[in-house]
Design a protein around this nucleic acid. Structure first.
Length: 339
DNA sequence: TAATCGTGGCT
DNA sequence: TAGCCAAGATT
């Protein structure tokens, strides 16, 4: 009988696993759940290259989940600045405090799933990788690999159910964590979105997509919606080598992050609010920034203030602006102002 | 179910 | 270069 898909893939993983900072060697004892959890949250919709320096900085500054739980939320938000999807940072703080209160991470998938910021993927990944549990781990890599392996014609996202069933069928009882990481490594290095390296693939012999002749057309995807372009204004208000920064409220766009005052632009429409101080204003130029679901043209203007603006905020020293934790949009605006 | 929520790298 | 894409979660 031919070796199973999982046996073949695990054998490949034993010699081809990527060496990543948050990962134990194949077959080695499971690594610290804190590091697994932290890396998995950082890696949500985010590339390995982007995560590495943040993972390094976080684990150096907060070596354990208790250290992170004791940190002021604003410190964590500022440390997350630039990585995107800031609800992850807010949930990271909440989850770390819940875990610290429990005395450590729960080991079951269902209990992990109850922590803020852990959805189906992350709960399964932590249970499998950190605790050695059998769990069905489905991320975008697995979706692509499985769609090709079984030549699934149903388009994403409606194909998720069948993809999950197929993944369940090929997930082994033992080494489910290594299997998950092997699938992700395969997707990241061999079974890539464009130009898959089928000649190097350990699973090519059993790949229905390859037998069909065009594996790259999987996974089939539903067409995407067009992105609207919104216009907004940001205000660079200085006074004696300081700039006026605000903190964005709530759970919406860039929620909880430090920012320049703006005119209330959003995904729904252009900005409309009045400037936070009287002018005179001088135009500094335009910042173009594309979010997931819309593009923004942010005009930046400056003035020198003689008193505090109306909005709540703080005077931030210009020579420590890199410590303010501005999201990339406003970091671009600041760069324009300081150019 | 579908919309919301960032950013940087790649082609 | 303009679009595509990445270890998704939440509502």
């Amino acid at each position: 009988m031919a070796a199973s898909i999982s046996d073949t893939l695990l054998a490949w993983y034993d010699t081809h696993a990527r060496d990543l900072p948050w990962r134990a060697r194949p077959g080695a004892p499971p690594t610290d759940p804190y590091r697994v959890w932290l890396s998995e949250v950082m890696l949500q919709q985010t590339t390995v290259a982007a995560v590495k320096p943040y993972f390094q900085a976080f684990t150096e500054r907060w070596p354990t989940v208790r250290d992170l739980a004791a940190a002021p939320e604003e410190d964590v938000m500022a440390a997350w600045a630039g990585l995107g999807y800031y609800s992850r940072a807010r949930n990271l703080v909440k989850a770390s405090r819940a875990v610290a209160a429990m005395g450590g991470f729960p080991s079951s998938e269902t209990e992990l799933r109850d922590l803020p910021g852990l959805g189906a993927y992350t709960a399964a990944a932590v249970a499998a990788i950190a605790f050695g549990k059998r769990a069905v781990v489905v991320d975008a890599n697995v979706e692509r690999v499985v769609s090709r392996l079984f030549a699934i014609e149903e388009p994403l996202p409606s194909s998720r159910k069948i993809i999950r069933e197929r993944t369940d069928e090929i997930t082994p009882e033992n080494r489910a964590g290594d299997f998950a990481q092997a699938m992700m490594d395969l997707g990241a290095t061999i079974c890539t979105s464009r130009d898959p390296k089928c000649l190097l693939c350990p699973l090519s012999a059993s790949c229905e997509g390859r037998k069909n002749g065009d594996p790259a057309r999987y996974p089939v995807k539903a067409p995407k919606k067009a992105k609207p372009v919104r216009k907004g204004q940001a205000y660079w208000i200085t006074r004696e080598d300081h700039v006026w920064l605000v903190r964005r409220v709530g759970t919406g766009m860039l929620g909880g992050m430090r920012a320049l005052p703006d005119d209330g632009w959003s995904a729904k429409g252009d900005g409309h609010k009045n400037a936070p101080t009287a002018g005179p204003w001088r135009d500094l130029g335009l910042v173009r920034h594309t979010f997931t679901h819309f593009a923004l043209e942010l005009a930046v203007c400056e003035t020198q203030a003689t008193s505090d603006p109306l909005d709540e905020g703080e005077w931030w020293p210009l020579d420590r602006l890199d410590e303010a934790g501005l999201p990339t949009l406003f970091a671009k605006a600041a760069r324009l102002a300081l150019a």
